[in-house]
């Protein structure tokens, strides 16, 4: 079986600093945690996985294809970026619908409604995301990542800002996605969080898997 996401001896450095060194792993359906301290190279690994950064050595493959070169490979990805990466001035529904259109979903409205229901935001779908709490924004980001039925879901610190109940819901959702055939890679610097969520754990120290 071809791994959904595969790193083969991937290295990435910025001048003299090794951000990611000789990293190899292969993901099949299920939840994999990427655990590391701040600055360990988690975000760089995520950028490499999504094709946003070029490996200096080694190869990254999604369904056997290079995500930097193949639109088909990138179309299989759902990304929940770190930080506030949301378009300003849009409602939650407008934002998830826009993402659905970007990803070629024919029924963008229906898919957006379903994705917002998954993260329990139906009641506030018509509100501007600018006024959302951090937890709500985080859930909007998860909704936009799920809207096109991704095969590979990549989440950068997805539990930040969520209250305990929302955390439980998201954790249950990630587990469920594994049973639906989705390979999930999520990063965190909290050991307990990773232990609870992940079936497999990749521990990253100074850019290297240990």
């Amino acid at each position: 079986m071809t791994p959904l996401l595969e790193f083969d001896r991937v290295s990435k450095w910025f001048r003299d600093t090794v951000a990611v060194g000789d990293m190899s792993f292969a993901l099949t359906p299920g939840v994999t945690g990427l655990l590391g301290h701040n600055g360990a190279g988690k975000s760089t690994a995520i950028r490499l996985a999504t094709g946003l950064a070029r490996p200096d050595e080694g190869t990254v493959r999604i369904n056997g294809l290079d995500p930097r070169r193949s639109g088909v490979a990138r179309a299989a990805i759902g990304l929940v970026p770190d930080g506030d990466g949301l378009w300003p001035g849009l409602t939650a529904r407008g934002l998830v619908e826009a993402c659905a259109r970007l990803r070629g979903v024919s029924d963008a409205r229906g898919a957006a409604a379903a994705a917002l229901a998954t993260v329990d935001l139906t009641d506030v779908a018509e509100r501007d995301v600018k006024g959302f709490s951090q937890g709500m924004r985080q859930r909007v980001k998860i909704a936009q990542a799920l809207v096109h039925r991704p095969q590979v879901l990549i989440l950068d610190e997805p539990l930040n800002g969520l209250d305990p109940q929302q955390r439980e819901t998201v954790i249950a959702l990630l587990h469920h996605l594994g049973t639906e055939g989705v390979a999930t890679l999520f990063s965190s610097h909290v050991l307990g969080e990773v232990e609870r969520v992940a079936d497999n754990v990749l521990v990253l120290v100074n850019g290297r898997l240990v």
């Binding site: 639109g71 179309a75 990803r103 029924d107 039925r149 996605l177």
Partner: peptide
């Protein structure tokens, strides 16, 4: 978990996007 994956068509072309 209320996850209902989108079952409709996904267009491969990026022209519409």
């Amino acid at each position: 978990v209320r996850y209902r994956p989108y079952e409709g068509e996904i267009k491969g072309s990026t022209r519409r996007a």
